[in-house]
Design a protein around this nucleic acid. Sequence first.
DNA 1: GCTAAACGGAGACTACCTCCCCGGTTATTT
DNA 2: AAATAACCGGGGAGGTAGTCTCCGTTTAGC
Lengths: 211, 211
Amino acid sequence: MTEPRLRADACRNRERILAAACEALVEHGPEVSIEEIARRAGVGNATIYRRFCGRHDLLHHVGLEVLGVLTEEAERARAEEVDALSALRRFAHRASNRSLAAVLPMVYGQTADDEPLHAARERLLGLVKNLMTSAQTTGMMRNDLCLGDFLTALAKLTRPLPGSPRPVVDTVRRQIDLLIDGLRTQRCCTCPERPASSRTHAGPVGSTTDD
Amino acid sequence: MTEPRLRADACRNRERILAAACEALVEHGPEVSIEEIARRAGVGNATIYRRFCGRHDLLHHVGLEVLGVLTEEAERARAEEVDALSALRRFAHRASNRSLAAVLPMVYGQTADDEPLHAARERLLGLVKNLMTSAQTTGMMRNDLCLGDFLTALAKLTRPLPGSPRPVVDTVRRQIDLLIDGLRTQRCCTCPERPASSRTHAGPVGSTTDD
DNA sequence: GCTAAACGGAGACTACCTCCCCGGTTATTT
DNA sequence: AAATAACCGGGGAGGTAGTCTCCGTTTAGC
């Protein structure tokens, strides 16, 4: 049964294609062209068609990969952080890496009635929902919020605006901290007191460092 | 000197085109097609070319109009609200109507070195900047934030995610309130204690009511 | 009711996108 | 190190969609 294992370079290219697809999706929206993804990945467009059978299949695998990473992050955050709100904050930060949270809405629209994708999604939603209710029942988080508020806010903040040369990671992080602080019941500043740069727009272009 | 005044129907159509362009821009991104805008406005595409000389000119006027409305809103908010933070909140709510705040980043990328647009933009930025420093010096708003943090967050939250049938106004409002609460120095819940719907995603599709 | 302004649709032309084929390149195996 | 099979990028055919213009018809305003 199949999967004769990919050659090393083919495997590398497959990863690159998936990563490029994520980037391209969040920047250009759901109907980004295959050519654009290929350009970004630094491969010929034929390579994409060789590895995936068509657009739908590509997006399917993008979705699966992203959902997998996020689910794992949610589990680790829950396990390694002491309280639910810190876990949510950590999860949010991880989800902002490579705009992961913003990829999902782009994929869903294009892959209707895709069963495994739907299942993976429900699993992630369940985990985050648990974190939220846990934070709420322990009194750390306000009660007038539902899952959708948090997740769509996360997706929106994570998604880069067109025109920004490279998403300034620092800004996104700060915005997420702001959001989390808004979620809190009591004020307890989690945001490092980084002096505000008085410049109007983006500061130095930060590298996408992992947390 | 020129501007022989438009006929009533032409004038109406011009408004419709500008409004449709805003909608289309925030939904499809900066390189949305003229055809799509015409479809949305319910006019033939020739009508757009009759009223504006090309894509650049259309976006220029979209930008001017949006900047004009937002500037006026900022001034009114400052004049009519008692404190700077309330003014910011009010401004943010108004800017979320018709996704106004999200239109601007779409326009800027396409209209480089457009002097009047740039001037109008600086004017608005100045007003908002004043509101922010005012809120900060009176101790209502945390100091580790700059103009860009607030404005890009506003633009992102205001921009609809692809796939959402109609932006659920209620959700956007709540997210903005969350953001403003995150800005505060002390907790003082501005958010009406609307009981959280436990449903996973969007609740009822709200109409885009003005504030 | 007349006239000039405005309208929508259709058409020419272009650009880009999808998908496949082919001659050259590279990883792997012995 | 040579053989071989997997893999690669570029280019091309066919198709779709976009931009902008022309033209016969409709409509607002006097």
